[in-house]
Amino acid sequence: MGGIELRGATKRFALPDRELTALDSIDMTIPEGAFAALIGPSGCGKSTLLRMIADVLQPTEGQIAVAGQPPKAARLSHRIGFVFQAATLLPWRTVRENVRLPLEIAGVTPRRSPEALIDLVGLHGFEDARPAQLSGGMQQRVAIARALVLEPSVLLMDEPFGALDEITRQRMNVELLRIWKESGTTAVLVTHSISEAVFMADTVHVLSANPGRLAGSVEIDLPRPRSLGQMKLPAFNALENAVRDLLFLDDRPAEQAPRRPKVAAVGS
């Protein structure tokens, strides 16, 4: 019910001189309450995929269902929470007012108060601070609280911790898992990091570029709750390697002359 389904989802962009196939026929199922990670090289269409699920972009072909509804219906009924790479907080609002923004827009009273959510993301005492007074990690936590305040069926996160240092990032990831577990939402996390994807997800979906295709999916059968200690286990490394193999399917030794993938000649 609260999951995400993609069937043959394709996105083409009309560029001035040609057509760009950003995503080609993506099939994917993310069960309700699951944590999915999307990983792939830059420009393979991860953000585009997330934007299509959130009804910011419409697929050129194929179908998408969010919690059993078309994305537009899901968006209009406030079932989608989105966290951008930049926190995107409104600088004139305090933390509390930023978290409350979706409630004002939807015109509802929440089951769970904004204050409770601010506690959940570990920002108790900062309710009246302005975004400019917070560190990057704290701002991103506010953005997560804001995304959760309407209790969305799905939580979409586009490299939310991409701008943070490794140490802060790991700490945020542990917290994010706790928040996800507690909120019961279906989560999709876009990331650049193999270890992050394996650490967080139930399933890691690997995308390849030009055009963006699903190279494969890796089931992560590590027990939950996850802890940073698990990252040292051989099972963890084996899963990382499985993801790495999918990412570098067409890899050849670095010392050999590279056989460049043929790029179709464009224009005149």
Binding site: R51, A54, D55, V56, R75, L76, H78, I80, F82, F84, T88, L101, P102, I105, A106
Partner: peptide, 8 residues
Amino acid sequence: ELFHVLAA
């Protein structure tokens, strides 16, 4: 985009 996703 945020306001779009929030259906404002």
